[in-house]
């Protein structure tokens, strides 16, 4: 069964990069441009894994993760956050919000797929 990954990022470039890497690894990819949009897409597509950026307009990554985690329907979905460098403070905040794991930008496709494998059942 093809797994669906939801990518949430306000940067088109980053969404395209993620799509390229994920589609290349056989994932079905759905996209959202910010946290708010992500929550809508979430209900429509029920992804197996979510990858989200942190800095986004409207609803940022922290808020998005928190919103997913308080929703009984989605709380079990693994969420990977994209961080630049390994900014420990942001990473920790994302984890406190309920992030399952993280991917350090820039990533290569293997690292990305590796991280998904680690959190996806």
């Amino acid at each position: 069964m093809t797994r669906t990954v939801l990518t949430v990022d306000d940067s088109r470039t980053m969404r395209d990069m993620l799509r390229m890497a994920l589609a290349g690894a056989g994932f079905n990819v759905v996209e959202a441009v910010d946290g708010e949009h992500g929550l809508e897409v979430l209900s429509a597509h029920r992804p197996d894994v979510i990858i989200t950026d942190i800095n986004m307009p409207k609803l940022d990554g922290f808020g998005f993760i928190e919103a997913v985690r308080v929703d009984d329907d989605y709380r079990a979905i693994p969420i990977l956050v994209l961080t630049t460098e390994s900014d420990p403070a942001k990473k920790d905040r994302a984890r406190r919000a309920g992030a399952t794991g993280w991917i350090v930008k820039p990533f290569n496709p293997e690292k990305l797929v590796d991280a998904i494998r680690r959190v996806a059942a």
Binding site: D10, S11, T13, M14, M17, N55, M56, P57, L82, T84, K105, P106, F107
Partner: peptide, 22 residues
Amino acid sequence: GDTVNAVFRAVHSIKGGAGAFG
């Protein structure tokens, strides 16, 4: 806050993409 955040995000996103392309 929104304006400042948007300003920050713009630079942040440029950096992120630039990083992806080395």
